[in-house]
Amino acid sequence: MSDILLEVRNLKKYFKTSRGALHAVDDVSFTIERGKTLGIVGESGCGKSTTGRCIMRLIEPTSGQVIFDGKDLSKLSARQMRKERKDIQIIFQDPFSSLDPRQTVLQAIAEPIIQNKLIKGTAAIEKRVLELMETVGLAERLINSYPHELDGGRRQRIGIARALSVEPKLIICDEPVSALDVSIQAQILNLLEDLQDKLGLTYIFITHDLSVVNHFSDDIAVMYLGKMVEKAPAEELFANPMHPYTKALLSAIPVPDLRYKQERILLKGEITSPVNLPDQCRFKKRCYMPCEKCDGCEPKLVEVRPNHFVSCHLFDGQQN
């Protein structure tokens, strides 16, 4: 029996704008097993961050259910939700703006511990902070430093230590390495991997960097304009991408190896507006293999192979 930690069912988030409803997340469903990593990839504005925030109810979803560890989070009151957030933590992209500039490392890491009343007593809290600093690879001498004294990699380690301080089950990593240099990026990715092995964490890894998500995830979901267009185990997705958008996305990765040659699929145009979407395939305008069905209605997500879901009319009727 699989051990499902998180199930998201028909999650929707529409923002009201003066021109109509902006479909940021539109009917997204997925599950994650305990101890696994789900990568969510897509371009800016595809709804990947909004999905992450809706799961924690940092943004209230318009509709849909989020079932975390057997509990339906969407039914909880604000007070109950606050308790539940102890088990779901988030690491933000920008380690420069996600830390309070007036808090020392000690205060920043201790804050969630104090807020959640996990440990009492200054000495005990400090001991726990030092433990966490060691876990994420921050030197003890930095305990009284302020964020501006530290570089991006170290700041991101503080963010990770804060997330770990409450012993969460699920961590949503929203572009955790995008703002970092490659050599530092690799350090942070390895740290996140080690923590997963050691603490049995489950991750949702939101990123636009496909080579990072390939390295890091068990399953990958590709989003386009609020919709999940394809979802498959990482290996399967890279070996056998089906949706035209996924194919284009994969072919656009610049590979630092001169032996690697591939046909590049150049997409026309840019991501279209997510406001007042008609009932047709959202990718149609940029698609290089449209068919007559695309105008008709929006394609459904179908399981084309075991665990490989695609939402494209080309695969209608190929249900596994």
Binding site: E43, S44, H208, A252, P254, L267, I271
Partner: peptide, 10 residues
């Protein structure tokens, strides 16, 4: 974004 990056580099 990656797909736009590919367009601009091209």
């Amino acid at each position: 974004d990656v797909t736009i990056q590919a367009q601009v580099l091209d």
